[in-house]
Each structure stands twice: as structure tokens, then as C-alpha cells.
Simulated assay, not measured.
Amino acid sequence: MNDVVSHRLNLPDGRRLGWHEWGAENGKTVIFCPGAGMAGAIPFGEAAARRMGLRILSVDRAGLGASDANSEKSFASWSGDVASLLQHRGGNEALAIGFSQGAPFALALADTGLVNAVSVVSGQDELASPEVFSQLPEPVANMVQLAKDDPERLEADVAAIATAEWLWQMIETMSGPQDRAFYASETFAPLYRRALEEGFRQGAAGYARDTRLAMAPWPFRLEDIVCPVQLWYGLADTSPVHAPDFGETLNKRLPNSKLMRLENEGSAILWSHAEAILEDLAGMG
């Protein structure tokens, strides 16, 4: 954590955007879209990023961590926040990584042309799309149906029950033995729990809105995303809210994608295979 530097930016509408960065000092920007309820930083691939000339920016979405809440938060407003960040940094070329629930937020950046390439890692698919919805277990399908029929109700229901501890317990429950051992390890668990605590420091509203946006039909078409997208999935990932077919449908819908499936690996590949993920991303961008 010593290499992580944190910043805040005043946005045009008066809100503040928080992010946390590491890697090569003046490297190419990589916007990292963290998983569900996460803020702050759990660094990955620090040495590889320095060697490859990449600067990773882990951005807190509105209402999480150091980023002020936005009652109008949407994929469009998220892209606007990142556009302001890129303008602030004086560059117009960037890459993106989306982990778990962060996947649609990374793909939204690609849809708006803000990034030149994306890595989706253990990412959530568009669960509301018919080809994916039919594969979901009933409890997840019920949430996705509610996100389609009454998104305000889903958001309110999630906000009423979600806490950092609740989400930690849910992640542990949904994870297979391999991921559970990794996430609960003495070195990783304190970092993960701190990231969730940071994510919920303003309450549950930021996470609840993210969940509504991620589970409802996405307002952009995957078929229109022309930049390269690398899809990374561990075949031992048991999460029911990632991709039930380990990226197969995503790979079919995205016109310029490549699917990487790792045997005997779970969702924690962002940390266990960070060097390979960053190397491929740098090569695409």
C-alpha cells in the first residue's frame, strides 16, 4: 500500500471525485473500475505496471469512498466523471479494467470512446439480456427481473439491507473454496474488508445504485463497442452474479473481443494473474 497515492478532483457540478493510483509515475492511464461496493484501493500488479509504463487509477464511483454522492448517477454520469479526470490529467488516451460489478462501468467507458481497450476480469455480464437471463439461478433472476420492472424498488431494497459486513458475508457465501481461501487469507482479507468499509463510508446508497445499474438492461449495446476487449474468467469462479457461461455470451456479442479462461482459477485472478492481464491490456492499447 505504500506506493498508492490518493487524490480528489472538484468536478464541474461541484461534486468531488476520489481516486487512488499506483504504477509508473508518468505511465499510460489505466482506469480501474472496482467490484461491488469497493472503494479505496487493493493494488494489483504494481511491479508489472511500473515495468510496462502503466499508471493504474482506481476510481471511486459516486457515493462510494472519497467520491461524493450523485442522486442522478448513471453510466453516462460515470463516463462524464472519468472524462473530467482524464482532462484534469492532461491526456486523452486511456485503457480500462473492470472487475466483477465494475465490468459494465468499464464497458460504458469504451462505448463513449474514452478508452482504447478494456480488460473485463471476472466480470458481470448483462444479466438482463435474454441469452444470459435464461441461465441465471432463481434468486438472481428475481433480482434482475425487479431491476427491469421496478428499478427504484430494487435500489431501495438493496439500500435497506446492505452494509460492508453484509456484502463481505455474501461474497464469502458465493465464493468457491479456492476464492474463499484467497479472500479470507491473512494478507488479503484486511485489504478487502477495508475496501468494503471505504465503499460504505457514506452508507449503502452508492452500492445500491450501482447494483440497480448493473442488473438492469444496459443503456449501451455491446455489439457497438469496437475497441479491443479482453475477457478473463476463472472456471472455478462460482459467483452467480458474474457470467454464468464464463464470458461466452460476452465474447459472442462484442465484435472485437478475446476470451481467456483459466482452469482451476476463481474470481481472484485480478490479483493472482495481474501481470498477464496487464501485459495483454498494454498490448491492445
Rank of each mutant, 00 (worst) to 15 (best):
A39E: 05
A76S: 15
A268H: 13
Y207V: 09
G283T: 02
S272Q: 13
V121K: 11
F32L: 12
S79L: 01
R153S: 06
R209F: 02
P139A: 00
A108Q: 03
F133E: 09
N264M: 06
L281H: 05
A282Y: 06
A69C: 13
W166C: 08
G91N: 07
S175T: 10
D60T: 12
R180Y: 05
A214H: 04
L254T: 01
W78F: 13
D3P: 10
A189C: 11
G27A: 07
S58V: 06
I31F: 08
I56M: 11
R261E: 12
G203F: 11
S175R: 11
I269Q: 11
H88S: 12
E265K: 14
L270M: 14
D3M: 06
V229E: 00
E138I: 09
H88P: 05
F182P: 04
C227K: 04
D179E: 04
L213C: 01
A276D: 14
S58N: 09
R193A: 01
R8M: 09
F220A: 00
S6P: 09
A204W: 00
S67Q: 03
E263M: 12
D68Y: 06
S100D: 10
G199I: 08
V82W: 01
R212D: 06
S100Y: 11
K252I: 03
N2C: 00
A282W: 08
S239L: 12
N92H: 15
S239I: 01
S239H: 10
H273N: 15
K252N: 11
G53H: 13
G18A: 07
Q145I: 01
A147I: 02
N70T: 13
A141G: 11
F105H: 14
S100Q: 09
E46L: 11
A141Q: 06
D13K: 00
W168I: 04
L9W: 07
G247R: 03
A66W: 01
M284V: 03
L127M: 14
I171R: 15
E172D: 05
R61K: 12
R51K: 14
G283M: 07
A184G: 14
S272A: 12
R253T: 00
Q169W: 00
G35L: 10
K73F: 15
Q135P: 06
N10W: 15
Q124N: 13
Q101G: 13
P104I: 08
G247S: 03
A147W: 05
V121C: 12
S119I: 12
